[in-house]
């Protein structure tokens, strides 16, 4: 009786594992149909081109947009950002590292611990106040922390991690 139970438990666990692994494998990334705006490289398990994961704006938007309303040092008053949850994005590409290096179009480089994304609900913003951000306007992608949610976030550490004109993310 007892062993039967253990056996069924084991079988359950094994089933769950295979389902998970299968899902991970199954989540292969589609190829971008437009010009890619984001390239993720490094320790990731899901790729679509040359060991990197490339995204165009549509692919990012299809992951679902999260809204963050906050004040920032770069804008006047409260601003509404919409973008992809970076935590979700990292899971999507099967990131397994400790930190990411974010590189902007102007080669501004900053490093962010991977934990930050889940801990602070960090997003990779696509829209500001309902409009897509152009390169002139710190677009196309902007790492945004919900600065107003905690006084800790209103510090240089997090402002420095908030890269704009983001083009590449390398998981290390």
């Amino acid at each position: 009786m007892f062993s039967a139970k253990v056996k069924s438990g084991l079988v359950g666990a094994l089933l769950a594992l295979t389902t998970f692994v299968g899902a991970a494998y199954a989540a292969s990334l589609a190829m971008p149909s437009e010009k890619p705006i984001l390239t993720i490289s490094g320790k990731i398990s899901v790729t679509n081109k040359d060991n990197t994961a490339q995204f165009d704006r549509k692919m990012l938007e299809s992951m679902g947009l999260v809204t963050v309303e906050t004040t920032t040092p770069w804008h006047e008053g409260k601003v509404k950002f919409e973008g992809v949850s970076l935590d979700k994005l990292m899971k999507q590409v099967g990131a397994s590292g400790q930190r990411v290096v974010v590189v902007a179009l102007n080669d501004y480089t900053t490093e962010i611990p991977l934990d930050d994304f889940a801990k602070f609900n960090v997003i990779l913003a696509i829209k500001r106040d309902g409009e897509y951000m152009s390169v002139r306007d710190k677009g196309p992608l902007f790492v945004i922390y919900p600065y107003d949610s905690s006084p800790d976030l209103k510090s240089q550490t997090y402002y420095a991690r908030s890269a704009w004109q983001v083009a590449k993310i390398e998981v290390r």
Binding site: L105, N106, S134, V135, R136, D137, K138, Q165
Partner: peptide
Amino acid sequence: LRYDILAGRVK
């Protein structure tokens, strides 16, 4: 792209 970046900066 470089033009846009510069224009953004100057703005």
